[in-house]
């Protein structure tokens, strides 16, 4: 089996390497990929959409159908993780660990015993015992708001600099996952619970598709943002720019929520009681 696999891989790679001789040279301005469609995008997109970042313009305007269904794919992945892993009923564990924060003492509560009162002095910790690490907690608590702010900047400034909905959404999701890693999963579930993340994921897709339908209702093609000009103010070209911003925000919300949702399900194996 091993030899057979190795032979297949070598044959495949050998054929590909042999045929790279026919490929255009690296960085060749006259290569087929750079001569048909992309010159149009480069030369016309700023006149069509007023967006200097060509990647954003192509992503959310010329190819906005593609991007809409990519967002749907991301949403579908979140749904798939939910249906694969989520345990319908969470059974009470054999024992739970609580930490008394002022003294640092860890308490093991057996099943059926009385649990400590719900106060700031006690916190539930994961059954794989984790030491109380003040440095990591405080550092990440300080870092998380700035990462989130940077994510918002990446979303909002995607027109003029590298960025956009996918990147900003992933950064925002990473900030929330960092919080869930350094604090407990239950702590982060208290802030963004499963229902909220599912709702955000769906509403992100809704913002995107809704913008398209709104254009349709205003008498233009699906996702033709120039129809939004009477609503947003400004001329049709600026409406393209604003429309791109709206759908990018939708993408960012969907991607952020799906990342967090997938993390919740993967980290707790669908039980949502204790994470990594």
């Amino acid at each position: 089996m091993r030899i057979f696999g190795l032979l297949t891989v070598l044959l495949c790679g050998g054929l590909l390497i042999y045929h790279t001789a026919d490929f255009p040279a690296w960085g060749d301005p006259a290569s087929p990929a750079s001569t048909h469609l992309s010159p149009y995008y480069i030369e016309h997109s700023i006149d069509d959409t007023m967006v200097p970042n060509l990647v954003t313009a192509v992503l959310a305007d010329y190819r906005s159908y593609d991007t809409m269904f990519e967002t749907v794919v991301v949403f579908a992945a979140g749904i798939a993780c939910f249906f694969l892993l989520r345990a319908a009923k969470s059974k009470t564990p054999e024992s739970m660990l609580y930490r008394h924060i002022p003294t640092g003492i860890t308490l093991r509560i057996e099943k059926g015993s009385k649990t400590p009162p719900d106060s700031a002095d006690f916190e539930r910790i994961d059954s794989v015992w984790v030491p109380y690490d003040l440095i990591i907690k405080i550092t990440c608590r300080l870092l998380v708001p700035f990462i989130q702010l940077f994510a918002l900047y990446v979303v909002a400034h995607g027109h003029h600099s590298p960025g956009g909905g996918f990147q900003g959404g992933v950064i925002f999701g990473a900030a929330l996952i960092l919080f869930a890693l350094t604090h407990n999963l239950s702590n982060s579930l208290k802030r963004i619970n499963e229902k909220t993340s599912a709702l955000f994921a769906a509403s992100g897709v809704l913002v995107y598709a809704g913008t398209g339908i709104l254009c349709l209702l205003l008498g233009a093609n699906f996702l033709d943002y120039s129809a939004l000009a009477p609503l947003l103010g400004g001329d049709p070209k600026m409406a393209h720019s604003h429309g791109i911003l709206i759908v990018e925000i939708g993408v960012a919300i969907a991607v952020m929520a799906v990342m967090v949702w997938i993390y919740y399900n993967l980290a707790s194996r669908g039980r949502h009681d204790e994470g990594l």
């Binding site: 750079s34 469609l37 992309s38 990647v55 192509v58 992503l59 996918f166 990147q167």
Partner: peptide, 10 residues
């Protein structure tokens, strides 16, 4: 060429 960047971003 912005097109491959767009495709790979998604």
């Amino acid at each position: 060429n912005p097109l491959p960047h767009v495709l790979m971003l998604t």
